[in-house]
Computed example of a mutant assay.
Amino acid sequence: MTAKRRPSEVLADARRKDSREKRAKVLAVVEEMVARGDAVTLASVAKTAGVSNWLVYAEGVREHIETARKQQAGKGRRDRQEGLSPSAASLRTDLELSRQEVTALRGERDRLKAALQRQLGQQRDQIGSADLIARVEELTRQNEELASEVGDLRLVKSELEAKVEELEDDLAAARSSLRRMIRAENSGPALA
């Protein structure tokens, strides 16, 4: 049978186990960061591993992180010496060239945008002018047709007025003739 442990012993064992797990996690994170080529710093390891900053400074952990940092620093120096990694001056030159290219591209974009706006404006004006010209021609034709129709109607009106006047004269003459006939009939021999 095992001896009964006191609560303080259980707590101490749990803390030791938790510490071992966190340390193992930190060492695994350091190896992953080195494999990915991420910059290994004490703060970045603590953040990535999700542990406190004091743990990455603890004895046995800090040495692994410092070794990884030295390996990365040595690799960067070797890469620069072998021409595999760009120098700071090369990066500044690339940045300046990129800025000049961006400026040139923005200028070209602005020129093309202005040219497109002018062209679209001209097309709209031409379409508008063509439509207006067609509409004016249509209205002019309709006006001429209506003027011709008005002339024809005036001619018909004058002919009808002349006919009405002639008919009124005929009617007046017929009335006058009818009155005479009625008078003659009334003044004629009386029948018994």
Rank of each mutant, 00 (worst) to 15 (best):
T2P: 10
T2L: 14
R5W: 03
R6S: 02
S8K: 00
E9Q: 04
A12M: 05
R15I: 03
R15S: 04
K17E: 15
K17F: 14
K17N: 12
D18I: 12
K22L: 07
K22Y: 11
K22W: 04
K25C: 07
K25T: 11
V26N: 03
A28W: 07
A28C: 04
V29S: 11
V30I: 08
E32P: 06
M33A: 07
D38L: 07
D38K: 04
D38H: 07
L42E: 06
S44M: 03
S44I: 00
V45Q: 06
V45I: 05
T48V: 13
V51R: 12
S52N: 15
N53T: 09
V56A: 09
Y57M: 14
A58E: 13
A58H: 05
E59D: 09
G60R: 06
V61F: 06
V61T: 11
R62P: 01
E63F: 05
E66M: 14
A68C: 05
R69N: 03
R69V: 09
Q71Y: 03
G74Y: 06
K75G: 12
K75H: 13
G76Y: 14
R77G: 05
E82F: 09
E82L: 12
L84D: 08
L84C: 07
L91F: 09
L91S: 15
R92L: 10
T93R: 00
D94P: 00
L97A: 02
R99T: 00
R99P: 00
E101W: 00
T103N: 11
L105S: 02
G107N: 01
E108H: 12
R109F: 12
D110Q: 07
D110H: 04
K113Q: 13
A114C: 09
A115T: 10
L116P: 06
L120H: 13
R124M: 06
R124P: 02
S129E: 15
R135W: 15
V136R: 10
T140F: 13
T140R: 15
Q142G: 08
N143G: 09
E144I: 13
L146I: 07
A147S: 05
A147Y: 04
S148E: 09
V150A: 14
D152C: 08
R154M: 12
L155K: 14
L155G: 12
V156I: 14
V156R: 10
V156N: 05
K157F: 11
S158Y: 13
S158H: 13
L160C: 08
E161V: 11
A162W: 00
A162S: 11
K163A: 04
K163E: 03
K163F: 02
K163N: 02
E165K: 01
E166M: 09
L167C: 09
L167H: 11
L167I: 15
E168K: 05
A172D: 07
S177L: 15
L178M: 07
R179C: 08
M181D: 07
M181S: 06
I182T: 07
I182P: 01
P189D: 00
A190W: 02
